[in-house]
Computed example of a mutant assay.
Amino acid sequence: MENRGPRFPSPPIGSWLAIHNGKTWDKDNAEAMATEFGLRVPAESEHPAGVIIGVARVESVTRGTAFRPSRWFMGETGLWLADRTPIEPVPCRGAQGLWVLPEDVLRQVRAAWTVARRVAS
């Protein structure tokens, strides 16, 4: 589940997204998530910043509903992600919203994804 605001563009169902770990650490949100969901959220030092950390396929999109279809859904727009695969971090400058990976980064992400899928099977 990836939660976003009401104006977030819907990526096409079935499309693949590279998951980017931004440079800014939100300590308050990390602590709130840990409390709400009973999770151990790793410390900031354990989170690589400014990197692609995984790949996932968009399975569906939920918009503007008062119904909370999952405990993980908490935004105005929810991207339901399937086939999630963590990869070795690939350095990449991020941007707001949806954006296209630079070609050199895309090649590195595809290579890391291939390795991760091979190891998982």
Score class of each variant (00 low, 15 high):
Trp72Ala: 05
Arg63Thr: 05
Pro89Gln: 03
Leu98Gly: 01
Ala34Glu: 01
Lys27Ser: 15
Val55Glu: 05
Thr85Arg: 03
Thr65Ser: 14
Gly22Leu: 10
Ala32Cys: 07
Val61Thr: 02
Lys23Thr: 07
Ala18Cys: 01
Ile52Met: 00
Glu46Pro: 10
Met1Val: 09
Ala34Asn: 01
Pro86Met: 02
Leu106His: 07
Trp25Lys: 08
Val58Met: 00
Glu31Val: 14
Asn3Gly: 03
Ala43Thr: 02
Asn3Ser: 09
Ser10Arg: 01
Phe67Arg: 08
Arg7Glu: 13
Glu46Met: 10
Arg40Lys: 14
Thr24Asp: 03
Ser10Ile: 00
Asp28His: 04
Asp104Trp: 02
Asp83Trp: 11
Arg107Val: 15
Pro48Gly: 06
Thr35Leu: 13
Ala116Pro: 00
Thr65Cys: 03
Ala82Tyr: 02
Arg4Pro: 02
Ala66Gln: 10
Phe73His: 15
Thr24Cys: 02
Arg68Trp: 01
Pro91Val: 10
Ser45Tyr: 03
His47Trp: 13
Ala49His: 12
Gly5Ala: 08
Ala66Trp: 06
Arg4Glu: 04
Ala112Lys: 01
Leu106Arg: 08
Ala43Ile: 03
Pro42Gly: 07
Thr77Ala: 10
Arg63Phe: 03
Arg71Leu: 08
Pro11Ser: 05
Pro9His: 01
Val119Leu: 14
Gln96Trp: 06
Asp26Arg: 12
Glu76Ile: 05
Asn29Met: 09
Arg57Ile: 08
Pro91Ser: 11
Met33Tyr: 10
Ala30Thr: 11
His47Ile: 09
Pro91Met: 08
Glu103Gln: 13
Ser45Asn: 11
Leu79Thr: 03
Val100Arg: 13
Arg4Gly: 00
Val51Cys: 14
Thr77Asp: 05
Ala120Lys: 15
Trp25Ala: 11
Ala111Asn: 05
Glu36Asp: 05
Arg7Phe: 14
Val105Thr: 06
Pro69Lys: 04
Arg84Ser: 07
His47Thr: 08
Ser121Cys: 04
Arg7Lys: 14
Asn29Asp: 03
Arg107Leu: 15
Phe73Val: 15
Arg4Gln: 08
Leu17Arg: 01
Met33Ser: 08
Ile53Asn: 04
Ser15Lys: 01
Phe37Asn: 12
Ala95His: 14
Thr24Ala: 09
Thr77Gln: 08
Gly78Cys: 12
Glu103Phe: 12
Pro69Phe: 07
Ser121Ile: 02
Asn29Pro: 00
Ser15His: 05
Glu31Ala: 09
Leu79Asn: 03
Arg107Ile: 13
